[in-house]
Design a protein around this nucleic acid. Sequence first.
DNA 1: ATGCCGTATGATAGCGCTAGCAGCTTGGCC
DNA 2: GGCCAAGCTGCTAGCGCTATCATACGGCAT
Lengths: 348, 348
Amino acid sequence: MARRKKGRTTIADVAAQAGVSPITVSRALREPARVSGPLRERIDAAVRDLDYVPDQHARALASARTNVIGVLVPSLTNTVFADVLRGIHDRAEKTDLQVQFANTRYSPIEEERLIRLFLSQSPAGMIVVGIDQTEAAARLLRKAELPIVQIMELGPDPFDMMVGLSQFDAGRAMTEHLLAAGYRRIGFLAARLDPRSIRRMAGYRAVMAEAGLDDDDLIVQTTAPSSVRVGCELLSEIMTRRPDIDAVFCNNDDIALGALFECRRLGVAIPEQLGLAGFNDFEMMAAAEPPISSVATERYEMGATALDMIARTIAGEPPAQKVVDLGFRLNLRASTRNAQPKRPQVAG
Amino acid sequence: MARRKKGRTTIADVAAQAGVSPITVSRALREPARVSGPLRERIDAAVRDLDYVPDQHARALASARTNVIGVLVPSLTNTVFADVLRGIHDRAEKTDLQVQFANTRYSPIEEERLIRLFLSQSPAGMIVVGIDQTEAAARLLRKAELPIVQIMELGPDPFDMMVGLSQFDAGRAMTEHLLAAGYRRIGFLAARLDPRSIRRMAGYRAVMAEAGLDDDDLIVQTTAPSSVRVGCELLSEIMTRRPDIDAVFCNNDDIALGALFECRRLGVAIPEQLGLAGFNDFEMMAAAEPPISSVATERYEMGATALDMIARTIAGEPPAQKVVDLGFRLNLRASTRNAQPKRPQVAG
DNA sequence: ATGCCGTATGATAGCGCTAGCAGCTTGGCC
DNA sequence: GGCCAAGCTGCTAGCGCTATCATACGGCAT
């Protein structure tokens, strides 16, 4: 039967040119060690000669395996995930794995739908964000027999592997620093309220409670997506509600930048009248005037590590550790008084 | 022979359950109109019953067609492209098209390599950025028989379709506005120097030349990737080189934000001593203090339109226009004197 | 009645590749 | 010299789906 795609160079063409059988070509490409040296060279030459590229679809169909890594992220625009994706992508390029993204829009329901969809295509591995999947999604992932990495945070009982940091500890650490620097009435500005934001906030609350400084009034939050504008609004609101605050810790850097601008508008001097800290440590934090203190996380590295872990597992050399804590770093700058533990003082 | 993937629900299972032949199921799924009503219903019911999901690979192999749209962008972290990708993705979700991204890192050589790679996988369509492909890449794309959209800018002789704006005109427009507002010694700060930056700059130069205000000294550029920090540095440099400038037009908003911070550091009042304008109109521009004038572009819409055009073409209803100009908008804010044509005045 | 046509469904033959085994060499050992 | 294990290479039979052709059927004009 005359069929389509007559032009395509197939494994049979390569085999003919190299004077071997198709299956030997197939092996030479996938498991070079199983083919003798001379043959391998002839085959390689033929491949180059004919510019042969294996058909991924035929390969996937025949082997019931694919080289697709499914990646589900909550947002495509948030720089946080852009960095992670870049890390994933960069490492994937060095392997023969293909990356397939999808956007859950911060919805666990949507995430579950996408997990079903991906799993039905038998990917080689999956990367998902966080630990708050729906129960059904968790069940699917647990019984799926493929490498899975949860990224961005850590938690008990991983589906398979994890690379992240403790968002709670990161929230704690910055709050502890602010306390140590002498701040007392520390506000918390939060938007989006995704699970990771919430755990950062929990870290903040824990520290404040331990210090006996807990106060619901100090927290201003909204489920609206994070943006610089929302940062302006939240800062404005907290200044109205609690004009006596001496610092604000923002659940991310967009909010912090908005807070900085709003302070400028309101004539609130940073850090003299108000300490300001963000989260993520985007590049602009260091360049701002004044430079803004922020909690740095290893986003690129997180994506890269996740992909590496999957690639290794597929290659049959699973990573030594199934859970990797990439930690965080406080980058303290002029927007906060950076005194080491010092006697508390009343803020200007 | 006992083979793998025994679990998978296939079209044959659906056919058995519905009491028809496999090929009829295949048709019912792809061209419902060609199957009679009652049969179609029985088949649909069986599909739902068995939770059947077609195997993309088998489908691609048999039909020599895929549903993959290849998208090549220069950067994954730049918000500009994140917005475009979101537009593409959002529309792709409404079709059965799959999006596959790759990152050219602003390198035409890398872009060519990726174009070869993608084309060898016979995608259903491709989206590429700009009009500056290598000659070889251009040849490949021209002879490829698939819908292709070039996005982000417009130019003569498209490979197939185009959605974008005239970067030159956009550069012109903002410069004309600055002139009309009375600025005379208008600096231009540019980083990265990708083709689109360069055309924006060309627009700026054209206007300055027409006004007899052209001066190489007014342009400070670097091939370093754009960042807020680089914006600080460029502003600092131009202030050293030409302390008499009265406005700066930045080739993007990161640079503009850096310039704003640096002005604050240097004690240069905006807009009193220096007008400031950016490009892209990121969300933060409106929230900044002072709010920064910027040229808004339809990035999300660009991605969405590109995908729509491809989807339509595949569906056999090609769009009426092969070239779509989405234009731009000047969003004028407090960082520039926004006088309408007025008599020139010496800047403070 | 007869034959023709258009429509709806089915049978057949692959798409390009790989799993599982079979067959052939080679070399080592008794 | 004969036998067997180990190492290569090749054959066969699909993976799940669809392009192409074939067939069945009802309606209509002749």
